[in-house]
Design a protein around this nucleic acid. Structure first.
Length: 306
DNA sequence: AAACTACCCAACCGCTGATAC
DNA sequence: TGTATCAGCGGTTGGGTAGTT
């Protein structure tokens, strides 16, 4: 069976011969694609593109559907929980965006990749270190991630003491001696799949089209500065004296390199299945700027002294 | 107000592995 | 077995927008 439409009398036309369109999708194209998939299903993208009457490559149709038109595509800021997960999974798998995306329901590999390149790599650049360097990985592992945990915990506590997010944050913080000062604690897996309860629902509307409006019209309220910049907003950040920072952070620094520390144990994300409904409500308001220049330099100084 | 810069992200490109013939 | 085509992945780019000078 030629499921891909190959062979037979079908001829493969060049893009020029087919007068294929490129560039941004129009609302009409979006609707055509959505309606076709609604009735015929997805897959076999090249034949789908032809049968639907779209002057696009199958590749383009697939990408548009997966990254934008799918009803379960989640839009808006990357939440703190998602940031934490991305950092952890990237440390484990590297640039395996698709694999990482499987653990963030509703997020696309493209979105995660963009997040990483625009936010995370920017900070590596600010720290004047390679994103793959040990220094930067340590920064992520021992500073950003614990700080994210703190913020998740704080956010959860502020909203509700018994919400799934609050419970999760409690469990998560309990597993981090950097935050809670305890090493003998349950790991992330203790929270398991219900670490973040909640539903993903972002229905497509014509307004969502990239051509109908700019990126911020579909709710992607992106912070002008990296989400991660907030991570180092320590109380001492206003103090320009590096000695003050180091003195104040002795205990913290010690815990960072504690062999029994939480992040030495690592997060047990392996127990998390793809498509797990793990976030609550979509906290899009918390992914904002946290990290100022002084903090960056403080961190740099700190690591050069470890 | 205009010019410039930085940022974000949708879309494209090139490659690889899988599959059908 | 070789070839053609497809799906999917990661890397890259171009355009729009917001902020700054």
């Amino acid at each position: 069976m030629d499921v891909n439409g190959r062979g037979g009398s079908s001829t493969v036309l060049s893009e020029e011969e087919m007068d294929l369109r490129r560039g941004p999708w129009t609302v009409e194209e979006d609707l055509t694609l959505v309606n076709y998939i609604a009735t015929q299903g997805e897959g076999r993208w090249n034949s789908l593109a032809r049968c639907a009457g779209l002057k696009r490559t199958g590749k383009s149709c697939r990408l548009r559907w997966l990254n934008y038109l799918r009803p379960d595509v989640r839009r808006g800021n990357i939440t703190l929980e998602e940031q934490l997960l991305i950092l952890e999974l990237h440390s484990r798998w590297g640039n395996r965006w698709s694999k990482i995306a499987q653990h963030l329901p509703g997020r696309t590999d493209n979105e995660i990749k963009n997040y990483w390149r625009t936010r995370v790599q920017k900070h590596a650049k600010q720290l004047k270190c390679d994103v793959n360097s040990k220094q930067f990985k340590d920064t992520m592992r021992y500073l950003w991630m614990p700080r994210l945990v703190e913020r998740i915990q704080a956010a959860a506590a502020a909203t509700s003491g018994s919400s799934p997010a609050a419970v999760a944050a409690h469990q998560f913080s309990g597993s981090c001696d950097i935050v809670a000062g305890s090493a003998a604690v349950p790991q992330m897996a203790a929270g398991g799949a219900d670490f973040y309860g909640g539903q993903v629902s972002t229905g497509y509307t014509p307004e969502n089209s990239s051509t109908a409006a700019s990126s911020d019209s579909f709710g992607a309220q992106v912070s002008p500065v990296s989400d991660l910049t907030e991570i180092y907003n320590f109380p001492v950040s206003d103090n320009q004296n590096p000695d003050f920072f180091q003195t104040d952070q002795v205990g913290y620094t010690d815990s960072l390199i504690s062999p029994s520390g939480y992040f030495n144990q690592g997060l047990d994300f392996q127990s998390m299945e793809p498509n797990t409904q793990w976030y609550e409500g979509g906290d899009t308001a918390t992914a904002d700027n946290l990290w100022n220049v002084e903090d960056i330099w403080s961190v740099q100084t700190q690591f050069t002294n470890i």
